[in-house]
Structure formats: structure tokens, C-alpha cells
Nucleic acid binder design. Structure first.
Lengths: 341, 341
DNA sequence: ATGAAAGCGCTAACAT
DNA sequence: ATGTTAGCGCTTTCAT
């Protein structure tokens, strides 16, 4: 059996020697590929376990094969992306799946708009990720075409208008549809909406769902009841004030953050929720449940979406399916007090 | 000058050929090392810029040198670590510094206690990170000694009782001291505290600071006014109820989450903040400012700590300083309404 | 100042 | 079923 070298630099060569086989045989055992005798397999496995050997990722990569490293590329730019629960949950889901598949996770986070091209180049050229999960809700994300022409396997988190790309998205249209339908069922008449940033698919799709719900019930879409904002709380506050001037009795907010701002605005003008004005959000952030009154909202299975994306990527990296997968994950209506009894 | 190969696989060989020099010279230019004529340097640089060439990380790694990849290892186990603003801010700081130093970031996130050893082995053996930032607030973290014996450069985020390790920590003792001193100055008499999880240095140090502040003012430390909890909101709620039974008129909470729970408890028993009971937190999470009343708290420069850790790691990786650095970052008292006028 | 050549640890033909 | 060997893209002696 021999003795273990007490250095940290354990190589496949060492393992092979300790197991009394050739490097190739050891390699075959590790990759569970090719024909190896049971005896050889057992010996090698034993040595691997005793030593805790892990093959050198760089060497693996260099032979042109899998590194077992996948990347996550957050292309949305912000100084505080991760403080947004959306991204932290996404990342948790991604990390969880990465662990399950024994993949190492590399994180690409931007801090400046100007970095995006350089970062993309690095990801592609450095060539040490097997594939990449790209978080992208913006229309016309410049990263996607580059990834395509580089031939690097990738899955988008957020939908894309290109039939050839793989993506996982929340079903925003139906989520919004459900939200607004709920308000209608509750008897509200003048239902306004505060949108997210409109260069963003989530915002676009949620507005679409809002309109659909009204139309299906034979109601007109009143443009004065649509306030175009962005996804943050301050925007919710300001735009809610505008909608209140239009005498809305219910507001569909395109995000919980918007909803929170809107709730403040409603309180500030002395109206009660849901008695005078009902409100429904989107996301089901942690505070939604703890708001006063608790906020009715649409829950996205963000974490699961992150997992799904990695699973899809893994399939692509290992099997290269012929058809691109495009998954729309259903959302869930969470009814709380802010939309009445 | 030649034409650019339109493949994605640009190698140093190609660059050299395009620039009309040898691979070695091109390499020297890229690493800004060794003697190269101005002319050769210019030519190579031009080709590099035109092509957007990035050296293959795996090949670099394989020659035994830097990969420009650093890791972050979050050793605290939780299903939802990243949802904790502490970690997301930390990660943002780390990512920002990594970008500045042109380092790629690899994220090691646990989902299960049992994974920790396997993950550590992977980090060490895989050998593709130049160094690693380890988030560790627990006492006796098993990862540290392994990293030491593996000779992998690392910096701990959180303090460690080992004179040989590099760390960046918030000055929790002084932070707590400042918090409690503030309560004393405001005239509060029976000041209780709710601690964090006591197998954790932050919790230990904050309790220490609490005791110090009382002693310095010649006050006795009353053990019935110390409620041992953990860092979450529910614990804050339950332990605040206990302290209220002891007729405290002020509470120092070891975290803002605890403080939030405590505020709920105070309201629930019909007392007013700060009139009947004052409360001060620790962390300055986003909601602290927006709480009702706004929460006085101790701000930790978490993001900056993350940056600092990467900077330290970078120094170690590039220069190997002889002395370990141990940095304690000062905290800041943020006075708001929850501790009175 | 520059080029030629060896070698990092692995995988994948190609023998046997 | 197993071993031998070439090479992945770089860095680094060692020549020149």
C-alpha cells in the first residue's frame, strides 16, 4: 500500500502508485468511465478516500474537458445587487444545486456598467467554467449574443426573445393576471398599477398580465391608472400618490418594494388599507408577511428557479440536448389582509 | 500583422504570432516581467487589445503560479445565509475588491453541516484559488487549521484566537461598549441585554462590551438582566419578554434582528419605546432606519470589511508579508429615536 | 532582449 | 483490462 506523501500536492500519479496501477487506470476510476477491473477500482477508490484526493481542476480544464466549475453572471448593475433578496435567493438556489452536482461556483458581479464587456470577455476567454447561468431581466442584454457566438453553454434566468436560448423565468404574465383577478373578485373597481422599470421583461410582463386580467373581465384599460415607475420603494411612494389622486380603490404593485412605498403613501394621506385602498405586491419578500397590514402578494419560487437553471445547465454541459429548454415557472397567490377579507 | 483567427480559442501562441514575436516574449509582456524591448511590448500590447485576449486560467494555474482566482468560503451553515444582509454586504465588498484587483471570485457556500470537510478538501486539493477569504465567527472553526496546514493563503472575516492568522473583524467589544454607554448617558438605570449565540465571537465580544460599559461606570453586572439568545428575531421577542419581567428600562440587543423582535414584544405588553423602555441594536440593517420608532444601533462597515479582507489576501498572495495582519475595524453609533431624545 | 524547450497534472487516443 | 504516450496553454529555466 505504501505511505502517503505528507505534502499537500497529491497528484493522480501518486494515487496510481499507491494503488499499484497506472495513471490511466486511476483516471478511469475517478471518472467512472472505460473498463476497469473490480479489483483495480476498489484499490483506487480506497486510496482516494484515504487521501481525500481531488483532481486538479486546472489540469482537467487544460485537456479540454469539464472543470466542474460553473459561473453565475449577474448582469444587472447595482452597487447593492445582493442586498436585493431576489438575487440572494437566486444565488442560494444556484449554490445549492451546484453543491448537489458537485460543481464549484464562480460568481461574476458587476460594479460598473463599463465592466460588462470586459467581464464577458474574461468569462469566455479564461475558459475555466463549463457553463454559466446568466441573470438577465433587461431587454437587449449585450452579454447573450456574445455568449452565443463564443459557444459557451449558458442558461438565462429571465426570459429572452430568442428561440435558441435556454431560460428559466417566472411566469410573470400569469402572476400579474392572478393578482389583478383577485382584486376584481374582491370587488374593487378602480384598479391602478405601478410598474417596474419598463426596459425590463418582468415589468413588461407584469403590466401585460394586469391588462389581460382587466380585459378578460370586460373592463377597459384606463391609461391614467397606469403609473410607470421602477422597482424600488421610493418609486412606489411617489407613484401611489399619483394614483390616489385618480381615486383608485386598489393598486397592483409590480414588486413588494413598490407596494411598501405605496402603503406608506396611502397611510400618509390618511387612508386605510384595505378599507379605502387595497394593495397587492409581487415577490413575497420577507417583510410582506410582517407588514401592517400583511401584504397580499405573488410569490415567485426564486430559489427553485436558481436550482432549475443549474440543473438545465448541467444537462446541457453533459448531454447537449438538441432542443433549447424554455421553462416558465408558475407563481403563487399569497392572500393576506391588504386586499380585504 | 496577419489576420485574427475567428475562433474563440485565442492562445498566447496566436498572440505571439500576430505580434511577430515568440511565445515567451508575449508571456513576458503580459505579466509585465522580465526584459522586453519597447518595440516588442508595444506590438504585443496592441494585439492583445485588439483581440481582447485573456490568458487561459487553467494553463496558468498548472505552471504553479497565480490563477487570479480567489475564493470566499462562508462557513456559517444556514439554508438562507445570503438572505442575511450581513453576508450579502460582505460578499458585495469582496466582489468589489476582487473586481478592482482583476480577480475572479469563487463562492463556497454550505448547505449542510456535513459538507464542511468535503468542501474544505475540495478547495485545498482542487488548487485553483490563489487564496481564500473565510467568513468565520464561530469558535473552533475546523476549517482554519486545515487551511493552515495546507499552506493556502487565507484571511478570516471574524476574529480568531491564533496569533498566526490574518483576520479582519469589527470591533465588537468597543461597539457594544459604545452602545451601552449611550444608554447610560441617556439616564437609563436597569439596562438588560439579549445576547447572540454564545459559541460565536461576535456574541461573546458584544456581551463583553456590555459588561465593560457597566463596570466603567461603577455599576454591577446583574446576571438576571442578561438573556442568552441567538441572533434572530424570534429569540429577541422571547427574551425581551423575560427581561421586561425584570423591569428593565433599556435593552441592548446584540443584533438588529433581535432588536426588532424585542420591539414587537415591548409593544405587545403595551409599553412605549423609548418612553418606557429604550432599545438599541447592532448592525444597522436597512430596516433599522425605517422601524417605528427608528432604531438606534451600531453600524458595522461590513462591506468595507469584505474589501479589506480581499486587499489583505492580495498582499499575502503577492508579497507574503512576514507578520500576520489583524485588523479590528471601528464601528459607529447611529443615534435614532429608540433611545430617547 | 529573445527564443527553444521542458514540464505543470491531467485526459484520451493508441497500443498491447 | 491496462499501460504508454502525446499534448492541452501556459511559465520558466537555459541558451544565445
Amino acid at each position: 500500500m505504501g505511505t502517503l506523501p505528507k505534502t499537500n500536492k497529491l497528484t493522480l500519479e501518486n494515487i496510481a502508485e499507491l494503488a499499484g496501477v497506472s495513471r490511466s487506470t486511476a483516471s478511469r476510476v475517478l471518472r467512472n468511465q472505460g473498463s476497469v477491473s473490480k479489483k483495480a477500482r476498489t484499490k483506487v477508490m480506497r486510496v482516494v478516500e484515504e487521501t481525500g484526493f481531488q483532481p486538479n481542476a486546472a489540469a482537467r480544464s487544460l485537456t479540454g474537458h469539464r472543470t466542474n466549475i460553473i459561473g453565475v453572471f449577474i448582469t444587472e448593475i447595482a452597487q447593492a445587487v445582493l442586498s436585493d433578496p431576489y438575487f440572494s435567493k437566486l444565488l442560494e438556489g444556484v449554490a445549492e444545486a451546484a453543491n448537489e452536482y458537485d460543481q464549484t461556483l464562480t460568481l461574476f458581479l458587476l460594479h460598473d456598467t463599463s465592466d460588462i464587456n470586459q467581464m464577458t470577455t474574461r468569462i469566455i476567454q479564461n475558459a475555466f467554467v463549463d457553463g454559466i447561468v446568466v441573470s438577465s431581466t433587461a431587454k437587449d442584454n449585450p452579454v447573450i449574443p456574445r455568449l452565443q457566438s463564443a459557444n459557451l453553454p449558458f442558461v438565462v434566468l429571465g426570459r429572452i426573445d430568442d428561440a435558441n436560448v435556454n431560460y428559466v423565468d417566472a411566469d410573470n404574465v400569469n402572476g400579474a393576471f392572478t393578482a389583478v383577478s383577485h382584486l376584481i373578485r374582491q370587488g374593487y373597481q378602480r384598479i391602478g398599477t405601478i410598474t417596474g422599470t419598463m426596459n425590463n421583461y418582468s415589468a413588461i410582463d407584469r403590466l401585460e398580465g394586469y391588462k389581460n386580467a382587466l380585459r378578460v373581465r370586460g373592463r377597459a384599460v384606463d391609461p391614467t391608472l397606469i403609473a410607470y415607475g421602477d422597482f424600488v420603494m421610493d418609486s412606489g411612494y411617489a407613484n401611489a400618490k399619483k394614483l390616489l389622486e385618480q381615486n383608485v380603490d386598489a393598486i397592483f404593485a409590480a414588486s413588494d418594494s413598490i407596494a411598501l412605498g405605496a402603503m406608506r403613501a396611502i397611510e400618509d394621506v390618511g387612508l386605510r388599507i384595505p378599507h379605502d385602498v387595497a394593495i397587492i405586491g409581487f415577490d413575497d419578500l420577507q417583510f410582506a408577511e410582517k407588514a401592517n397590514p400583511p401584504l397580499t402578494t405573488i410569490r415567485q419560487p426564486i430559489r427553485r428557479m436558481g436550482k432549475l437553471a443549474v440543473e438545465m445547465l448541467h444537462d446541457i454541459v453533459t448531454n447537449k440536448p438538441l432542443q433549447p429548454s424554455r421553462v416558465s415557472v408558475p407563481t403563487e397567490l399569497i392572500v393576506r389582509a391588504s386586499t380585504g377579507g
